[in-house]
Design a protein around this nucleic acid. Structure first.
Length: 215
DNA sequence: GGAATGATAGTCT
DNA sequence: GACTATCATTCCG
């Protein structure tokens, strides 16, 4: 088996001078289109300087998708999905985990993209602390999985739901550092029972930080 | 290496 | 009262 991962001599620090906040227009497209665009972008927590590259996402297609929270229409929980695009939708599942999504499509439509895995770039120690892990930890265990990455970034529904990813004053942002995604794999979504065969999970081929099977 | 299992609480019917 | 867009642990081979 290849064990070729990250060359240790090449720390992939994010060059913040080359970073640009992504425009809201990026989120106006359908969720599968937005999902592909998000691969390779950076998720940034401004306050603690936590940065991770998005390497795995899933698309959810609003009211036409039986696996989406918004399938049954607007409720108090999923109201953010029906609002303007580019906002964070955070929900609590299985009694112990948060999941982070970004709303897509124009206001009134409820498409969204679920963040499933990040490649941690900055603030690894703070991420490990957030996860309650003692050093040394494998970087790949910090943010590979929707529940894990929320824990690492300290994301909660109370603190981050409805946050605007495209606002300069926002603590939670999505930035573009010019990274160009290589080959993208598409597989069925994970952990759902309805419409389980639909291919709507997007991940960077060969990236060691994706969750579960590499596709 | 992979499969099975329990923990745990918000949301909706 | 049922159902989760999960994770970590424990088994087994």
């Amino acid at each position: 088996m290849l064990k070729r991962c990250l060359p240790p001599s090449k720390p992939r620090m994010a060059d913040t001078s080359a970073c640009a906040l992504v425009p809201r227009a990026l989120f106006l497209d359908p969720p599968d289109v937005v999902a592909r665009k998000l691969l390779g972008k950076l998720l940034v927590r401004a306050g603690e300087l936590l940065v991770g590259r998005i390497v795995e996402v899933e698309a959810y297609f609003g009211e036409s998708d039986p696996a989406a929270h918004s399938f049954a229409g607007k409720t108090a929980r999923n109201a953010v999905l029906f609002g303007p695009p580019g906002h964070a939708y955070v929900y609590f599942v299985y009694g112990m985990h948060f999941c982070l999504n970004v709303s897509c499509e124009p206001e009134g439509l409820a498409g969204c993209v679920l963040f499933r895995a990040l490649e941690p770039l900055c603030g690894l120690e703070a991420m490990a602390a957030g996860r309650g892990l003692a050093a040394p930890v494998r970087a790949s265990s910090l943010t590979s999985g929707p529940g894990r990455l929320c824990q690492a970034f300290g994301i909660t529904r109370e603190g981050d739901n409805d946050a605007d990813f495209t606002a300069p004053e926002s603590d939670l942002q999505i930035q573009d550092d010019g990274f160009v995604a290589g080959e993208v794999l598409v597989t069925p979504r994970i952990g759902i029972t309805k419409d389980a065969q639909r291919a709507a999970r997007f991940l960077l081929a060969g990236n060691p930080f994706v969750s579960g099977r590499r596709g």
